[in-house]
Design a binder for these strands. Structure first.
Length: 209
DNA sequence: CTAATGATGATA
DNA sequence: ATCATCATTAGC
């Protein structure tokens, strides 16, 4: 069963990645007993000349789902310890996606707190892409899941649409290239939006004496 | 500021 | 097979 608003969201996700990214703001993501309102996202073009995209160098085992149809979850493991989640957008073969960078926990606070023991304020529960996945209990098991149906990971339209003038954009976080593209979008003034950090090349491990 | 911690993709 | 990199986070 798909209501009108869900159909509209599905259509939006099937289109160009930037409108899709903006449209994901305010949507709800529900998984493993926690619901989050999406407050910050980043757009990534697939093979179409975006050096920061995981799909930039073509299809691999990791990014395979990005090359499929829109509305599916691209979840990846990074830095040896963190999971991050994207929503695949655009037509099949294009491999564009939107990284969910932050959200506000609006349901399942107790569960989220239990998963994020390091956090002091509720605002920090899903403030950051890996934190958002941790709060929602998302990992590799969510890879390739369809998000607009009745599955274990559900993406639902914003209960109240976000006015365009509440959306701010800026450079993406942590990416090495394409800093010129203002493809990070967030809700103006929202306290759950992650702090911007300029990308710094990691220094080589200090040489042992 | 840096350590943690392992998959990934490039190179050979 | 080996190496550098990594869409990050927590804790000094």
């Amino acid at each position: 069963m798909t209501d009108n608003a869900t159909s509209e969201l599905a259509e939006l996700l099937a289109g160009p990645v930037v409108p899709a990214a903006r449209g994901l703001l305010g949507c709800h993501l529900d998984a493993n007993g926690v619901t989050v309102r999406i407050t910050e996202v980043e757009a990534y073009a697939g093979t179409a000349g975006d050096p920061a995209s995981h799909a930039h160098r073509g299809r691999t085992a990791r990014n395979a789902v990005m090359f499929g149809p829109s509305g599916y979850a691209y979840v990846y493991f990074t830095y040896g310890m963190h999971w991050c989640m994207n929503v695949v957008t655009g037509p099949e073969g294009e491999a564009s996606a939107v990284l969910l960078r932050a959200g506000e926990v609006i349901d399942g606070l107790e569960v989220a707190r239990a998963r994020r023991t390091a956090v002091r304020r509720d605002l920090d529960l899903a403030r950051g892409p890996a934190r958002l996945c941790a709060a929602l209990g998302l990992d590799g098991a969510a890879y390739g899941r369809y998000l607009l149906g009745d599955g274990p990971v559900r993406l639902t339209p914003a209960p109240t649409p976000v006015p365009p003038d509440e959306i701010v954009s800026g450079p993406r976080v942590g990416v090495t290239g394409a800093h010129d593209r203002p493809w990070r979008f967030w809700l103006d003034g929202d306290p759950t939006v992650s702090q911007y950090r300029r990308h710094v090349p990691r220094r080589r491990p200090t040489i042992a004496p």
